[in-house]
């Protein structure tokens, strides 16, 4: 088997383990301690933020403007509108600013 296939298959198995692992560990306990519960409730904000932060901190004016506009739209409208508004600002400004 080629290295590529080996990497894909091993990577897939380990990835599936990450997608099921947290539940396998947690389901061993009969009840979840309130502090663990509080930690789990923090997961969306905590994890998703780390996918944005490095790019946001190193962003130029076009990227920052796109995030600001997307953020404002997100306060009133749904995901679709937010995404398209941000994308439109990003692409328009990159044409101008390069």
């Amino acid at each position: 088997m080629s290295d590529t296939l080996y990497i894909i298959i091993a990577g897939a198995i380990l990835t599936y383990l990450t997608r099921i692992g947290g539940h396998l560990v947690l389901s061993r306990f009969d009840r979840v301690h309130p502090r663990v519960e509080a930690g789990l409730n923090a997961v969306p904000a905590a994890v998703l933020t780390t996918l944005v932060a490095p790019a946001a901190f190193s962003a130029g004016p076009a990227e920052l403007a796109a995030l600001v506009v997307a953020g404002l739209v997100a306060l009133r409208f749904g995901t679709m509108s937010m995404f398209f508004a941000g994308a439109a600002v990003l692409i328009a400004l990159r044409q101008v600013l390069g």
């Binding site: 998703l48 796109a66 995030l67 997307a70 953020g71 997100a74 995901t79 937010m82 994308a87 990003l90």
Partner: peptide, 16 residues
């Protein structure tokens, strides 16, 4: 904007 579109999307998810 290929490199940054997914960042915008994730940013929206965080705000949600």
């Amino acid at each position: 904007g290929f490199d940054f579109l997914v960042t915008i999307y994730f940013f929206g998810l965080v705000l949600g």
